[in-house]
Amino acid sequence: MKIFKLSAVLLIICAIVAGILGGVNYITADKIAEQQAIKTAKAYAAVLESENYADVEFDKESFPTIDNIAEADNGKGYVVMTSFSGAQGKITMAVGVDKELKCTGISITKHSETSGLGANAASAAEVGVNFRSQFVGEGSDIAITKAGGNIEIIAGATITTQAIADAVAVAITAVEAIL
């Protein structure tokens, strides 16, 4: 009998906690969705300016690292959302690509790179801004300086830089495929 009583107590407590969590979730759900929308909108606007963006179909099989491609309404080009592995974990990034298949900018929305090294790629400080501006105008043949390209690596973060450059190249190829 005892075991039933104990399970009943545990079940009641679980139910109370779940009920409270449901309430909190109800209050915060809209806000969380809103925050995410703001974040995506900011990333889109940072790489390719437009009033509105419309999602377009793409071949997920050939480009597994790409999450979404959206076309800018003003006809300037496309925004590619991509997540790929950096030095420490997944990096999520928006890449702007224009109709001439040149990169118009990148914006990192989520990463877990090493603070002070790879994390500089996403930083709002000068080092981050300068790093990201190098990608503007690059095509799918993008490469780091060591491999004969134009992208200067962040000190101590060759792997992060290489991963970002590779991801930009993939994004441009993906846009080329849907054009």
Partner: peptide, 23 residues
Amino acid sequence: AIFVVVIAGFVTIVDLLLQAYIP
């Protein structure tokens, strides 16, 4: 077991609030 449930409850509340207000 009850302590763990209570703790998990509060952690989830803080987690949701952070996601909503300090993403």
